[in-house]
């Protein structure tokens, strides 16, 4: 078992440093902006100015996590689908418009995907294992699986996170490359996992990723069977789409709450954790990440057993 010690999200919902994100959770309209915390509390003002949204979110969420757990992280694993889009676009504009030999390197330096995890290690002075994964809509799940593996290998304070940021350019791809009715949003969720229960309420029982075009219902059934449960045992399904709504006792499409970014299934983990805090009788939640039709991510969240 992989116990969720703490979880923080910065999204278009009021989700940062909340007792329970369900208290204020509402379906997003296209009008909702990113709800930014006071980043100055986590990042020196001089540094803040040159940091894009994705870096601000990632650094702040992970620092807020570190404050809540006793041990320094002994592993940092971050997933991002499209990475630092603001700085990537900024540098693309620079190289196409600025002539002469002197180009500012800041946007280039901050354009690489691992700027997020690198900056976290730098700000926390953390020398541990530091990894950045990017696999389109499964970017969070592959980062999470690395974190779980780190715990299997004996690490005990494992930071796993996902972050993506929206830029206006994405709107041009709607309907052609990106099929979604949801607004493009930015979001970051970071959680601390441990092999020890501590004060945690819930744990991640299993996470699996699929890259085949096999029937998704069959894959879900096999995944549940491998974890000794079935649809009947699920109290809640959090799903990107709504393919499994008819089989669920309770069902939410998490994209309605997170908006569209490809690592939004990390926010669903936050929804699941807080759901179990709020709903004392519920035990098991399945997150179905079917955001892209050619792949599938499944994460099973379970309430910790109460010791007698």
């Amino acid at each position: 078992m992989y116990f969720i010690q703490h979880i923080e999200s910065i999204t278009h919902q009021d989700s940062f440093q909340k007792d329970n994100i369900w208290n204020d959770l509402k379906p997003l309209t296209g009008e909702n902006e990113l709800i930014s915390p006071d980043y100055k509390n986590y990042i020196p003002v001089a540094a803040l100015r040159r940091l894009s949204t994705i870096l601000r979110m990632g650094i702040t969420a992970s620092k807020a996590c570190q404050e809540k757990v006793a041990n320094e992280f002994d592993s940092i694993s971050v997933g991002t689908a499209l990475g630092c889009l603001t700085d990537t676009e900024k540098f693309l504009v620079t190289i196409n418009t600025v002539s002469g030999d002197i180009l500012s390197p800041t946007a280039f330096i901050q354009s690489t995907h691992n700027t997020i995890s690198g900056q976290i290690s730098l700000d926390l002075k953390n020398h541990a294992y530091n990894m950045t994964h990017t696999q389109n809509a499964l970017s969070f799940e592959v980062a999470l699986k690395d974190g779980l593996l780190c715990i299997d290998e004996g690490k005990n304070s494992v930071l796993v996170g996902a972050a993506d940021e929206a830029i206006p350019f994405l709107e041009r791809l709607r309907g052609s490359l990106i099929e979604t009715e949801h607004p493009f949003t930015s979001g970051a969720t970071f959680l601390v996992l441990s092999g020890e229960k501590g004060n945690s309420i819930a744990c991640i029982q299993a996470c699996e990723v699929y890259f085949t075009n096999e029937n998704k219902a069959t894959q879900v059934e096999q995944f549940l069977a491998a974890n000794n449960c079935s649809f009947q045992d699920l109290d809640l399904i959090l799903e990107a789409g709504s393919d499994f709504k008819s089989q669920a006792k309770k069902h939410y499409s998490f994209l309605k709450y997170s908006g569209f970014y490809q690592s939004a299934s990390a926010f669903a983990v936050h929804m699941a954790n807080d759901w179990l805090i709020k709903n004392g009788d519920d035990k098991t939640i399945l997150i179905v990440n079917n955001l892209e039709s050619n792949k599938l991510g499944l994460t099973l969240i379970h309430r910790n057993d109460v010791e007698a």
Binding site: T112, S117, Q135, L138, F211, T212
Partner: peptide, 29 residues
């Protein structure tokens, strides 16, 4: 632009080899 995401480059390589049990991309410069 569909070729842009780093993750897509790996999915394309995996497809060329017909590998599908697991695909992942590491991006640490």
């Amino acid at each position: 632009y569909k070729n842009h995401p780093s993750g897509t480059t790996s999915e394309q390589i995996a497809k060329e080899l017909e590998i599908d049990a697991y695909v992942n991309t590491i991006s640490t410069a």
